[in-house]
């Protein structure tokens, strides 16, 4: 698909006098891993919610998977996956039941559910745990499972909101292997993170400051632009300019 996965132009969200997201514009290519960075309160989550069809923009334009965020929220929802920073599977359901539930909500047939479910369980090496309650799994496994479930319906774009919060470096690395796999199969990955080592893994990065996008490029170019040796330095240089206090 040559079509852009996400196209955003002057997207704005106001809550009363407060401009949470201030005229942001960017494109994301199909199959790209797009890092969406910013300090707490910079407006990342609000921007992401608009793109997911969870809230209406105040002004501007945006298309996700080719669908308009004002008029075609239903179509958008069918074509995206979403994983939030809060752990989002049901703890009192088993691994299999969670897969069946989320797959079922996305309208997968019984046959697809079975195939996809088995494939997913094998891929994650959860054969023994398939009938265990998700609540009893270690956090890293839960996160990997949550990600796999979020893309079980082969969406065009998957939105990840700080997916690796609280997970150890080894598991994070494994998590990113899954992300690369997904991107390799053509799924666009839109990811927010606070870990700068993860930022380096992205194809391109945008950094939000006070509701604006102040920088947008590949990690290598950004480092050059800010004369920095790591993404950490780039991020600090930008975050220091923020006037808004984090919430």
């Amino acid at each position: 698909m040559s079509e852009k996965a996400i196209v955003c132009k002057d997207l704005t969200k106001r809550f009363g006098d407060f401009v949470a997201v201030n005229h942001i514009s960017f494109d994301v290519d199909q199959g790209e891993i797009f890092g969406f960075l910013g300090a707490n309160g910079a407006g990342k989550t609000t921007a992401m919610r608009m793109l997911c069809g969870l809230s209406y923009p105040t002004s501007g334009e945006a298309a996700v998977a080719g669908y308009n965020v004002f008029k075609q929220q239903e179509e958008i929802k069918r074509n995206i996956g979403y994983m939030s920073q809060k752990f989002s599977l049901y703890e009192t359901l088993t691994v299999k039941e969670n897969i069946r539930f989320y797959g079922g909500v996305y309208g997968l047939s019984d046959k697809q559910l079975k195939e996809k479910g088995d494939e997913l369980i094998t891929k994650l090496g959860l054969e023994k745990e398939a009938k265990m309650m998700v609540g009893s799994l270690p956090l890293g496994w839960k996160q990997k499972l949550a990600f796999s479930v979020a893309i079980i319906h082969q969406p065009r774009i998957v939105f990840l909101d700080e997916p690796t919060g609280g997970v150890d470096p080894v598991t994070r690395r494994q998590f990113w292997d899954l992300i690369y796999d997904a991107a390799g199969s053509g799924i666009t990955v839109f990811v927010t993170t606070h870990y700068m080592d993860e930022a380096e893994y992205c194809n391109r990065i945008s950094v939000m400051v006070d509701g604006r996008i102040d920088a947008l490029d590949t990690p290598a170019n950004l480092k050059k632009q800010f004369d920095a040796t790591s993404m950490n330095e780039v991020f600090y240089a930008l975050a220091r300019t923020a006037k808004r206090s984090a919430d």
Partner: peptide, 13 residues
């Protein structure tokens, strides 16, 4: 509270 509601709302349900 669990955050699963968000997932449901993002789904086509």
């Amino acid at each position: 509270e669990m955050g699963t509601m968000e997932i449901l709302l993002v789904s086509p349900f």
